[in-house]
């Protein structure tokens, strides 16, 4: 559905993105992840025909973003980071205006507007002036705008930024519901969000794609081993010795807490939690807490993006 090949964009001397390539299948939700100023917005603006790339090409729904810009715009719905709202209009008037400029047929306009109002659940504010709405409602009105004319491709730039936790969950649900009918690209710098809503993730750092995979695969790839966090009561030296007896343990980190307890971080090639417990009890070391620490997308993200900085 969307094919991006070696997109590069310079703002003057500054390179915003370089050789960005990825593909999105029909009906898929792709998450674009990266720290602020990584080039996510630039990539999205190019895909939505807001501005042309310096080099490279991309097609959306088989149409070239440069040569067939009008066709691309016709099948794409875009929600920029700051929802483009005319604050003096009412929600209904605004959607009516967008429907007209999107070329929704006259007799279908009303039904189309009712559909997006329902999808974005903004029925209660449909007659209110946009400028007087809360941030959450404004974001939804933006989303409703983006879904007008039932676009095949939906591009959302940081759709949950600035919302309260309840609103975030609602917007995420809404996005998940788009799956199947729409091909979605979603950008975010919040990892759990991408983990929860997207089937595939592209991680962008400093304008380059550093990883592209499913959230699960990315996690698995990073998961070189098991990491266990323990809270123990005992002698530091003795504790270290206990863990060294296991040949599969690769690293042990011990920190003393203010209360005289030990916080231990153990990494190993396989899950050894049972064996740890037994060994500790045999040595009469107090085992207060033990938990398996899963490698999160966050770790991968930090790993990938900080590695980039070091290079």
């Amino acid at each position: 559905m969307i094919e991006v090949n070696d997109l590069t964009k310079y703002y003057g001397q500054k390179r915003a993105i370089s050789n960005v390539s990825f593909k999105v299948k029909k009906g898929e939700i792709l998450g674009m992840l990266g720290p602020n100023a990584a080039g996510k917005t630039t990539a999205m603006r190019i895909l939505t025909c807001y501005m042309p790339p310096t080099a490279g090409s991309a097609t959306v729904g088989g149409y070239d973003i440069f040569d067939q810009s009008m066709q691309v715009r016709r099948i794409t719905g875009y929600l920029p980071e700051n929802p483009p709202l005319y604050t003096e209009l009412t929600v209904k008037d605004y959607l009516m205006f967008v429907a007209k400029i999107k070329g929704v047929e006259k007799d279908k306009t009303k039904a189309e507007i009712d559909t997006v109002i329902e999808k974005a659940s903004i029925g209660e504010v449909r007659n209110r002036v946009i400028g007087k709405l809360s941030k959450g409602f404004k974001q939804r009105v933006g989303l409703a705008q983006c879904l007008l004319n039932n676009p095949q491709v939906v591009i959302l730039d940081e759709p949950t930024v600035g919302l309260d936790p309840k609103q975030i969950i609602e917007i995420r649900e809404l996005i998940k519901n788009l799956k199947g009918d729409h091909t979605v690209i979603l950008s975010s710098h919040i990892l759990p969000e991408v983990e929860q809503t997207c089937e595939r993730v592209v991680i962008i750092s400093e304008g380059e794609v550093v990883a592209e995979d499913t959230p699960e695969n990315l996690t698995a790839r990073m998961k070189g081993g098991e990491r266990v966090l323990l809270e123990l009561e005992g002698d530091e030296k003795q504790v270290k010795e206990v863990f060294r007896t296991f040949p599969d343990v690769t690293a042990v980190k011990v920190n003393k807490t203010a209360g005289g307890l030990l916080k231990v971080e153990v990494e190993s090639k396989k899950d050894l939690r049972k064996d740890y417990a037994q060994a500790l009890i045999v040595k009469k070391i107090g085992l207060l807490e033990m938990q398996s620490d899963k490698v999160t997308l966050e770790d991968i993200f930090l790993h990938l993006t900080t590695k980039e900085e070091a290079a």
């Binding site: 603006r45 939505t48 025909c49 807001y50 009008m70 715009r73 016709r74 794409t76 875009y78 920029p80 700051n82 483009p84 709202l85 005319y86 604050t87 967008v98 400029i101 999107k102 070329g103 705008q145």
Partner: peptide, 14 residues
């Protein structure tokens, strides 16, 4: 100022 030009540029209007 309001960023609504982004809407006009990305919808099928010349």
């Amino acid at each position: 100022k309001q960023g609504t030009l982004e809407l006009l540029y990305t919808t099928p209007i010349t």
